Every structure is written in structure tokens, then in C-alpha cells.
Amino acid sequence: MEVALRPVHDSDLPVFFRQMNDPESLQMAAFTHEDPADRDAFDAHWTRVRASSDVVRTVLVDGDVVGSAALYGNPGEREVTYWIDRTYWGKGIATAALRDLLAEAPERPLYARVAADNPASRRVLEKCGFVVSGHDRGFANARGEEIDELVLTLGS
């Protein structure tokens, strides 16, 4: 299984939209857009993201689009994020994609946030060198309530 990153193509967006509306994935990710099913908001978001200086990549497995990975925010405060299609969970794809993304962007420190009850995503981050550096609470749109989250840091 070959994991690769490439720039986002227009043809990736319908796949991302479908992935980001999977109920189980939304529950696990927790921190999502206010209404993930709002296609106009989704399109506007991706137009802004693709026009920004953020590092945004499509994750491919054997040439198939399986998700996205990104580095966003202001220098010194940049965060990583990733989304992998649920049918590919547990196969090391998120870890491989995040490692590749980190190799593209050597700046440090970098940050990540994860729902405290999402141990799989925490493991991905820790395998890539992130360490828990704090705790927070935030409103999780996908769950409709405030939940605990972990803040992780790579580098200092």
C-alpha cells in the first residue's frame, strides 16, 4: 500500500465532502464546521484554504483519494489537521500522511488538537513526535456540546 501526498485538485472536493459527512467520522473528529452538510460553506472554505499560504494536501493510497492533510495558521502558531476516510482507519495511513506533511514543512513548533476521547488520532500524532502539552475544552459542532480536548506540540 503506497501512501502519497499531492496538491488538492478540484476533483478531490466531492470526495472530501462525502468523507466529511460520514456520521461516525464526524462523531470521532468532533471539531468540525458548524454544518458539514452545507455544500456552499464547504466550497467557500476550500476556496479560501486553497488561496491561502497553508500547506494543504490530498492523501492518496495506491492512487485513490482517501483524505486530506494540512498545516494552517500563522507562523509560530501553525496547527496540523488530517481527515482519512473511515474505511481506511487503522492501517497506518494517517501516520504516513502526517509524516510526509511534516517533512514538507520543517518549521517548528507545530500544534495539534484532538478530542480527548479520540485515542486513535492521539496515537497518530504521538507516533509523529507530538507530545501532549495541554488540555482545553471547546464546543464540538459534531456533538453539539462542549468536550475535553488535548493540545499537542511538536518541537519547541
Rank of each mutant, 00 (worst) to 15 (best):
V124E: 00
R123V: 08
K127N: 10
G90S: 06
P109Y: 12
I93D: 02
R113V: 10
A94P: 03
A97Q: 00
T95L: 04
A103T: 14
V114P: 08
Y88P: 01
A120Y: 03
P109N: 15
N118Y: 01
S121T: 03
V124C: 00
P106T: 15
P109R: 15
V124N: 00
D100W: 02
L125A: 09
C128A: 14
E104S: 12
L125M: 09
L110V: 08
P106V: 15
A120D: 11
T95I: 00
T95Y: 04
P106H: 14
L102K: 10
E107V: 12
P119W: 07
P119C: 12
G92S: 09
A120W: 02
G90W: 05
V114G: 04
D100H: 06
L110D: 09
V124A: 00
P106S: 12
R99G: 08
G92F: 07
K127L: 03
L101H: 07
A112M: 06
A115F: 15
L110K: 08
R99M: 04
E104T: 08
R99A: 06
C128S: 11
L102D: 14
G92T: 13
V114K: 10
R108G: 11
L125Q: 05
L98P: 06
E104Y: 01
L102T: 13
P106M: 14
R123W: 01
A112H: 05
A116M: 11
P109K: 13
W89H: 09
A115L: 04
S121H: 04
V114R: 07
R123Q: 07
T95V: 02
A115M: 05
D117G: 08
P106D: 12
C128T: 06
A105H: 15
P106R: 14
A105N: 12
R108C: 12
V124Q: 00
I93V: 11
R113Y: 10
V114N: 04
I93N: 01
E104L: 15
N118R: 07
G92A: 12
K127E: 01
G92R: 10
C128H: 02
A112L: 05
P109E: 15
R113P: 13
A120M: 05
L98R: 01
A103R: 13
Y111L: 13
A120R: 11
P119Q: 09
Y88G: 00
R122A: 08
E126Q: 10
A96S: 07
E104K: 07
D100E: 06
A115E: 11
A97G: 02
V114E: 05
E126V: 03
P119H: 11
L125E: 05
R108W: 13
Y111Q: 03
V124L: 00
S121P: 06
K91E: 05
L101M: 12
L102Y: 09
A112P: 02
K91D: 01
A112S: 06
A120V: 03
D100L: 14
P106A: 15
I93S: 01
P106Y: 08
A94H: 01
G92N: 09
E104Q: 13
R122H: 05
K91W: 04
R108K: 14
R123A: 14
E104R: 13
L102A: 09
L98Q: 02
L101K: 04
R122W: 10
C128F: 04
P119S: 08
E107D: 15
C128L: 10
Y111I: 05
P106I: 14
A96M: 05
R122M: 10
A115I: 02
A94K: 01
Y88C: 02
